[in-house]
Write a protein that binds this DNA or RNA. Structure first.
Lengths: 148, 148
DNA sequence: GCAATCAGGACCCGATTGGTACGGATTGCA
DNA sequence: TGCAATCCGTACCAATCGGGTCCTGATTGC
């Protein structure tokens, strides 16, 4: 389905929540889990990945927690996707990488998806997490409105 | 990894091969399998899906086979992806659909990915299968060139 | 009537993902 | 100095999904 993982979804939620509470302080993983309604271990996992990618900064210790490494407006969606789902490439053969495919010599699609990957990267690079956060979370569905 | 399925990849190969041999005649699934180097049952499966989506037309019987329903230039990539991978939506919650998510009321991301989905649809709608077929299948990789 | 082909479904195996658990390191505070 | 709270890294397990195969029918031409 051309889908990306749930973890990426969670990451956006957590990042959005982190910015809302941004007053210079930090938020703990358990606190974020309670605020988002997600499972605590899952939130911790997401935060660890984001920390590894440099999108959030973790501070250890008794008064530790997480805070954003930079404002969400300066955080392109591609960074989050790349951090959690890996490099943005629609097929297993990333761009023109060599040595991964067993039927490399006869593979009829080598390099063929490159323009598609580029198109998607361009489309996504213009969207920041702040753009997603700006969307109202609950949007009335046309069917529901029509049914009323 | 934001990946789409291998089947979609195969579909592009098969469609491209179908157009090359387009002289008004048809190509059989076993023939296409031999021509593309893919497994025969797999090719048959792809063709069945494409036929169901109306992208190719199957003709049964002794002299049966498949032919393109329309030229590849008039076949947007989104049609093939939608036929094989389903509707283009990055998350499980397709757009603003209701009733699928269990934690619907508290879900903090409902409708949030819509602009992303739209951006990807726009980026992909401008690409036809003919555009992909036009890309040379074998492209020298920069690393390989540098290593020589 | 027979052979060749498409059509549709069921099935199984492997891979990936989501989610969990555990031990260790770091920091603040009493 | 010890304790508690927190992050960090890794390993692990269960469930889902996709790739691939097979079988049985329906249709067509010879």
């Amino acid at each position: 389905m051309l889908r990306l993982s749930k973890l990426t979804d969670y990451a956006v939620v957590v990042l959005t929540r982190l910015e809302e509470a941004e007053d210079g302080g930090v938020l703990t993983a358990p606190g974020l889990a309670a605020a988002t309604g997600l499972g605590e271990p899952t939130v911790a996992k997401v935060l660890k990945i984001l920390s590894h990618a440099g999108l959030v900064e973790g501070r250890r210790g008794a008064a530790g927690g997480y805070r954003l490494a930079r404002p969400l407006a300066e955080m392109p969606l591609t960074d989050v996707i790349a951090a959690i789902d890996g490099p943005i490439a629609l097929t297993a053969c990333v761009d023109n990488s060599i040595g991964l495919c067993d039927a490399e010599a006869t593979c009829p699609v080598r390099g063929r998806w490159d323009p598609v990957n580029d198109a998607i990267r361009r489309a996504l690079s213009g969207i920041s997490i702040a753009d997603l956060a700006r969307v109202p979370a609950i949007v009335p569905h046309p069917d529901v409105v029509a049914a009323e």
